[in-house]
Amino acid sequence: MPRWGMVIDLDKCSACQACTVACRMENNTPVAGPAQAAQGRAILWNEVIPSVEGEYPNVKMRFIPRPCMQCDDPPCVKVCPVQATYKNEDGIVLIDYDRCIGCRFCTVACPYTVRYFNWFEPQWSPELRAHLNPDPEVAPRPKGIVEKCTFCIQRLHKAKQAAQDAGRVFQASDYVPACVETCTERARYFGDLDDPTSLVAQLAKSPRAVRLLEELGTQPKVFYLREG
């Protein structure tokens, strides 16, 4: 079984946020609007976070694209009272939208705060609604439950199906999340971390590779290549 992971090269990232937009279109995350967004209510499974380090004149601005870290030892899964959030056999942390009770224990337990809550019934303007992804796997989630980045799990399912339909063996390269496919600077890499010949596995071993809050022992499967 592959261990899906992602590498993001911060040297290449231009903070264009195409990943954020692609994620939104692929996964049907609702539009919060400026007022709600200012209150911290925006749902962005993938977010490009500006981070200012230091103070003028010794100041440095960095941009950190942040999907779900897909931890191998996820703190969110530990605390879920109903197993609505779980790690599947591919190592991807998912949420059962029909089972989640909306207690928000996982959102609090996630040290990366990558989990989002549906504060209201999801909304789109008519123009945007017309462009919702018709895939039933990413049908809009109801209010009162938690959602987050799934590494576009629906794309994995589709890729496997396509391989089966074509009568060939499914390969890791068949599957790629929307943010990786879209990345204008090709700063994102995706694949099987357990396959030593894969590009992601090799990049993840690079001396530039770091993970966020590595010291917590959550074993994230998203790696960053530091700016050189």
Binding site: K78, V79, P81, V82, I101, G102, C103
Partner: peptide
Amino acid sequence: IDMGRVDRLLNVLVFGRFQSPML
């Protein structure tokens, strides 16, 4: 009151997993 989906309260009994401190 704090639950987003109080209508699913019974899930805690039906699907309750003891690793969660909520249990």
